[in-house]
Design a protein around this nucleic acid. Sequence first.
DNA 1: AAGACAATCAACCGCCAGTAT
DNA 2: TATACTGGCGGTTGATTGTCT
Length: 298
Amino acid sequence: MGRSPCCDKASVKRGPWSEEEDAILRSFVERFGNAGNWIALPHKAGLKRCGKSCRLRWLNYLRPAIRHGGFTDEEDNLILSLYGEMGSKWSVIASKLPGRTDNDVKNYWNTKLKKRYLAAAATEATTPPPPAAGDDDNNPTTQASSQPAPPTPPAPLVNLDAAGLDGAVGDNDELLLHKSEQLYAELMGLIEQQQYSTITAAAVDAATTTTSWSSPSTGTTSPTASSSTDGSSSSSNLPWPAVDVHDSTMMPPLSESSGSSSGLFFGSHAFGSGSFQDLLGSAASFDDVMLSQEMLYY
DNA sequence: AAGACAATCAACCGCCAGTAT
DNA sequence: TATACTGGCGGTTGATTGTCT
């Protein structure tokens, strides 16, 4: 039997992510996690993206404490050492390098380290082998000892399904409205801050050096700022505490999804499935969408 | 200045393993 | 037990950027 595709490729957007999409995905994941299901996430968040694409975007780019580029000599050596031990187990290797993704390590290997490795291997062929694996100089535990900041108490996550944010309107309308208004305000704050991120990035980087981390056992968050080496927006710009979902298994479990969620509230604005993105696509700018409030009520 | 080439890296693809039903 | 579904992974592609001629 053939394998069913994870999404309808004809109806999902592909290619580079826009700032608006990043903002939506970031705000959604930091608030709700992956809602228990990456495949269903774009539907709930109003993104016309494949769930796997959302997951990849979050894990490789939007996740807090991500570092891009600027590999240190220590990291180089560790990658070379681990590759020699286990080969192209990029996820394992990346797990030994805080803030690095498997994709980054893989790209770095293919573009830079591979040549060094092959050259070293060629040299090694004519000389005695190096010390066995497990050398303390490359001990991952030692590497991890420089890790950041202890976790701090988490911000409570809103349970999307339990809160009825799937578009259903029940007796707790006021509660929903309140939560929705908060979300809307937060999203607007994020967008506004992103407009100035270029200006403030340098100052933020200079002022923030800690990273967020969380406990898998508790799914707690560490709402500390993260530095960004490339000047891109980071959780430090966010108006709410960051949820660390370094590993998706760390995400706090949400209640069972009904599977029929059909929309999401931002502020007093209810977005049906895909409707938010529909508006984005038809508007001249993201601001146009937000300013056209009457369009958002339905 | 412009074209060719190389390097980089975000994103996609398809497979596999684990889990739910 | 069989099947379907999802998350995760490694390999690969292709657009963009930088460098060289």
